[in-house]
């Protein structure tokens, strides 16, 4: 680091997204990082559940990822997608069944030449009515060779690891999020 962290500023606390974000944060094309059905596109989708196993119809999921070659996107245009520019970021509100859907590409490994042990993943933030602050997690790719050496995945129990790895389906990947319960998703904090 070029500048030592002084931590002179206390962080602003989070608060719940509440029930009324639906007319404010979603926008046309928000979940389509690439046009659905375009060459190389996949559907990344899943359901969000509460501790009683009920789907959550008022959650907001955001993903942030490298492009297929592992580059960090730094192009603007997520809010008015042109269909050609990959911005790496997307937003999907859950529907009344608690289901979210993205159209995107598989991320390439982001640490080429730096930490080759890290497996490619999607960065994820979760917001919901009833959830008082954001949650971070990651979606890893099923059966990816690099998973076996990924520093986070290897630090987890088998059950915890299973909550972070998507399953392949006919159109791409499925990843369910459990805020609570037997299959509670492993959430992350960064050091």
């Amino acid at each position: 680091m070029s500048t030592p962290a002084k931590n002179s500023q206390s962080p602003t606390p989070g608060q719940t997204i509440g029930p009324f974000f639906g007319y404010a944060l979603p926008y046309e094309g928000d979940a389509d990082l690439v046009p659905p059905g375009s060459p190389g596109s996949i559907r990344l989708h899943g359901w969000v559940y509460d501790g009683a196993g009920n789907p959550i119809p008022d959650a907001l999921i955001e993903i942030w990822q490298t492009d297929a070659e592992g580059n960090v996107p730094q192009a603007e245009g997520s809010l008015h997608r042109d269909g050609w520019t990959f911005t790496g970021w997307g937003r999907a509100a859950t529907d009344l069944n608690g289901h979210y859907t993205f159209s995107t590409v598989l991320p390439g490994a982001s640490e080429k030449g730096k930490a080759p042990s890290a497996a490619p993943s999607f960065g994820v933030t979760v917001f919901a009515r009833g959830l008082l602050d954001k949650l971070h997690t990651r979606i890893y790719l099923p059966e990816h060779a690099a998973n076996a050496g990924d520093p986070l995945l290897v630090s987890l129990s088998e059950d915890e690891r299973a909550t972070l790895v998507a399953t392949a389906d006919a159109t791409g990947l499925r990843f369910d999020i459990h805020l609570q319960g037997d299959r509670e998703t492993t959430f992350l904090t960064y050091r």
Binding site: I56, H136, S155, E160, Q180, T186, T189
Partner: peptide
Amino acid sequence: LRHPTKDPRHADPETIELWSPCFGHSD
């Protein structure tokens, strides 16, 4: 029913997580 019961796991951020999405005047 909507709070995790386990403490979050500490993770070293990946390169992608150390960057933010970019927004601009086209947005």
